[in-house]
Computed example of a mutant assay.
Amino acid sequence: MEFLEFKRIARDFSMTIIPGAFYEIKKNTSIISPIIGPEGEFIGRQEKIHPFDYERDYVKPGKEAKIFNTSCKFGVIICYDMVFPNVANLLTKKGAQVLFSPSRIVRRGIIPWQMYVQVRALENRIPILAANVENRKYGGSSVIVDLSENNKVITTKMTKLKGESQKFKEFSLDKYESSRKIRFSDSKTFQ
Rank of each mutant, 00 (worst) to 15 (best):
M1S: 14
E2W: 14
E2R: 15
E2I: 10
L4D: 13
E5L: 12
R11I: 07
D12E: 12
S14M: 14
T16G: 06
F22K: 04
E24L: 11
E24F: 12
E24V: 11
I25P: 09
I25V: 15
K27I: 14
N28Q: 11
N28C: 02
S30R: 15
I32R: 03
I35S: 04
E39A: 03
E41Q: 09
I43T: 09
G44Q: 12
Q46W: 06
Q46G: 05
Q46S: 01
K48P: 09
I49L: 07
H50R: 12
H50Q: 11
E55N: 03
E55C: 01
D57V: 00
D57G: 00
V59E: 04
K60I: 00
P61A: 08
G62M: 08
G62Q: 09
K66R: 15
K66E: 13
N69P: 01
N69R: 13
S71M: 03
F74C: 01
G75T: 01
G75S: 01
Y80F: 10
V83F: 13
V83M: 10
V83K: 13
F84Q: 11
P85I: 12
N86D: 12
N86H: 15
A88P: 03
A88L: 03
N89Y: 10
L90T: 13
L90Y: 14
T92N: 08
K93A: 00
Q97P: 02
Q97E: 08
S101L: 01
S101R: 05
P102Q: 04
R104D: 11
I105R: 10
G109W: 14
I110P: 00
I111V: 07
I111L: 08
I111D: 12
V119A: 06
R120W: 02
L122N: 01
L122Q: 05
L122I: 02
R125G: 05
I126W: 00
I126G: 00
I128A: 05
I128K: 12
L129W: 12
L129D: 05
G139S: 04
G139D: 07
G139R: 05
G140E: 09
G140W: 13
S141I: 01
S141G: 10
S142G: 07
S142A: 05
V143T: 09
V145E: 00
D146E: 08
D146T: 01
E149Q: 13
N150T: 11
N150D: 08
N151H: 09
V153L: 13
T155W: 06
T155L: 07
T156A: 02
K157Y: 02
M158G: 07
M158V: 04
T159H: 10
G163H: 08
E164P: 08
E170Y: 11
S172V: 10
S172F: 10
L173D: 04
D174V: 05
D174L: 09
D174K: 15
Y176Q: 04
Y176I: 02
Y176K: 02
E177H: 12
E177T: 05
K181V: 15
I182V: 15
F184Q: 15
F184L: 09
F184V: 08
S185W: 10
K188Q: 14
T189C: 08
F190V: 11
F190N: 13
